[in-house]
Design a binder for these strands. Sequence first.
DNA 1: GATTCGATCCTAGCATCGCTAGACAATCGA
DNA 2: TCGATTGTCTAGCGATGCTAGGATCGAATC
Lengths: 192, 192
Amino acid sequence: MSVKERKERERADRERLIVATARELAEQQGWDAVTTRRLAERIEYSQPVLYSHFRGKREIIGAVALEGAAEMAVALRAATSAADGPRARVAALARAYLDFAEHNPAVYDALFQLDGGLAYAREDTPEQLKDAFAALLECLAEVAGDGVHPGLFTEVFWAALHGLATLTRAGRLLPEDAESRVELLVDRLAVI
Amino acid sequence: MSVKERKERERADRERLIVATARELAEQQGWDAVTTRRLAERIEYSQPVLYSHFRGKREIIGAVALEGAAEMAVALRAATSAADGPRARVAALARAYLDFAEHNPAVYDALFQLDGGLAYAREDTPEQLKDAFAALLECLAEVAGDGVHPGLFTEVFWAALHGLATLTRAGRLLPEDAESRVELLVDRLAVI
DNA sequence: GATTCGATCCTAGCATCGCTAGACAATCGA
DNA sequence: TCGATTGTCTAGCGATGCTAGGATCGAATC
């Protein structure tokens, strides 16, 4: 039995290696550079091995997205728990979100820009994604304002952050005023 | 001389045909389906003809984006001019923006998601793009609030709309609550 | 210890992609 | 009428995601 277990363990290791390598390559040179050939070469296996773990490139992107969602949730909770008062918490949340997007562009793309074949806003949505949204919700619920559904408020706030993140990174917004935009957004949207 | 003029006219016609066909194909089957081969076949010319008009596929996307920006500006101004009062104008603007994104997804992608090789937020930004932003600015300046730079306010409002548009279309937000989100966004961000 | 057999992995290849070189034909000016 | 220029097409390059089929290796059996 232990032989089988060892093989399964090695297989799981290799799968983690694939995801980590794909992420690394994407962060270094962008997702366009993550080709199945290059990825296979980096993990020192042939191409078809990738397809014994994942259905295709899309599923690999999805795996990176799930990993990233878990990390984002951790980062958001760490930022909010370190701040005092609703206003400071929301501001910290917004900055943490935008920081994550800025410092992990490939992961952010896998999560929200590319097609990773994941289900969103549904019952069968992966736990990692639900939890990342929950991390936003926990903080934002207390500033949603009377009579406003916390989930709806979180969606709007999140959309605004997502817009800022993507437009900035795509060069549509200049990064200089990023902090001013966050201030304005928090001041207006959050009800203290 | 008239022969030369006729040829130039025909060439310009063909260029418009390329852009229109690319847009049509993208709206029908998505940008992935817009390959140089398929596009060439639809305009009934060979592939290399495309490259005598555009540097590559990227520039074709850019041309569709510029066309779309001009249309969006028209749509936004039409919506705002038909509304009475600041609150109604901003709400109409937001709805018009999201409607445009919903009904012209391929054009919206060309504008804000794909790489069309265009310069944004710079001096050499094409007029169409500047004008589309101006259409937003014209309406939003009157609700930016005291001491808030209208340009900055417009960027934040725009980012929120962009976030709603992309997240909804990518299935990250359910379309049912779209109207509620717009109401919330306008109520909070706009200072009446 | 030899042999069978199944799992595992790789070589080679398919269709398609964006893009381009070079051949060919049509048109123009002399 | 004849070279030159312009315009267009055929054919092909390197790269992509993905897969079929054969080779190889290790575990279990005799």
